[in-house]
């Protein structure tokens, strides 16, 4: 349905996006994951027609964005990262405004406005100006405006940056609901949990390059099926580090103040060995977390960096 072919964008000598290609099928929830500055937003900007790629192509149902911008844009809905609303207009006026800009009129516009207000849970606040909304309400309306023309593909650029947990959950649930009802979604984030929760397929970007792409389970496997083990200890692990490394020869043990972590294929026996090694130095675990194979680990495996460290690590 949506096909992105070998997109490339440079700013001066800086290569922002370097040969990104992916395909999104109808009904997909496609995740675009990567640290800050990985090129997610640039990719999204090219896919939604905000900037021209240096090379490469975006096709929707076989129509190129470059050749038929109206056809493609009519079927895409963009939810920008910031609150892209008119502050002094009411919720309803904003929806009508954007509906008209997207070429929706008359009865269809009326119906869509009602539907969007329902989706955003703002039916009771329709006559209220956006400037008087809470942060969460603004976010919800921001998404609803992206839906006003009932797009076939909804593109969301980090819609949960800087908001509270409750609003975040509401947004994630809304997107999931929309996706279940058949809407195709492209979702960018640097929170791997969100992508894991929402998406069935994804691409991971780093330094403008695509370093992983495919179904969620396939990408997870790229991490080699490693689980992450984190232990909080009642003492400093430094003296026990050599013993630990001996007990777990295959893994690299990272130690911090009062804590250690390592990645391992089979966490059960490894935890036992580690606890034993530590007890010889009189250190006992206060808490043990085991994370099953996940994107975080995959990213770590692929780049040697943690996702949340961001692009400047």
């Amino acid at each position: 349905m949506l096909e992105v072919r070998d997109l490339r964008k440079t700013y001066g000598s800086h290569v922002a996006v370097d040969g990104v290609s992916f395909t999104v099928s109808p009904g997909d929830a496609f995740g675009l994951l990567g640290p800050n500055g990985a090129g997610k937003s640039t990719t999204i900007a090219m896919v939604s027609g905000l900037i021209q790629p240096d090379s490469g192509e975006v096709l929707l149902q076989g129509h190129s964005l470059r050749a038929h911008p109206r056809f493609v844009k009519q079927r895409l809905g963009l939810v920008p990262q910031h609150i892209a609303l008119h502050e002094r207009l009411t919720a309803e006026e904003n929806l009508r405004y954007w509906g008209q800009v997207y070429g929706v009129h008359g009865a269809r516009l009326r119906d869509n406005v009602e539907w969007c207000l329902r989706v955003a849970g703002l039916t009771d606040h329709r006559k209220q100006r956006v400037e008087r909304f809470s942060g969460g309400m603004k976010r919800r309306l921001n998404i609803a405006v992206g839906l006003i023309h009932r797009p076939e593909v909804l593109i969301m650029d980090e819609p949960t940056v800087g908001i509270d947990a409750q609003s975040r959950n509401h947004i994630l649930d809304t997107v999931r609901e929309l996706n279940r009802d058949g809407m195709t979604v492209i979702y960018t984030s640097h929170y791997m949990q969100e992508v894991e929760y929402l998406c069935n397929r994804l691409a991971i970007l780093d330094h403008g390059r695509m370093i992983a792409y495919g179904a969620l389970d396939d990408v997870r496997l790229l991490a080699g099926g490693l689980s992450t083990v984190r232990m909080d200890l009642d003492g400093d692990p430094a003296p026990a580090l050599d013993a630990l490394q001996q007990a777990l020869p295959a893994e690299r043990v990272e130690a911090g103040e009062g804590r250690i972590s390592f990645h391992v294929r089979d966490p059960g026996p490894a935890v036992g060995k580690a606890v034993l090694a530590l007890s010889q130095y009189g250190i006992a675990p206060l808490r043990i977390d085991i994370e099953r194979p996940n994107l975080e680990a995959a990213f770590l495996q692929l780049t040697g960096r943690r996702l949340r460290d961001g692009g400047d690590a």
């Binding site: 844009k73 920008p80 609150i83 954007w98 800009v101 070429g103 405006v145």
Partner: peptide, 15 residues
């Protein structure tokens, strides 16, 4: 431009 309204307009099918 800072809020993204501008992006949204450019992303719309309006020429």
């Amino acid at each position: 431009r800072n809020s993204g309204v501008w992006d949204r307009l450019l992303a719309s099918p309006a020429p």
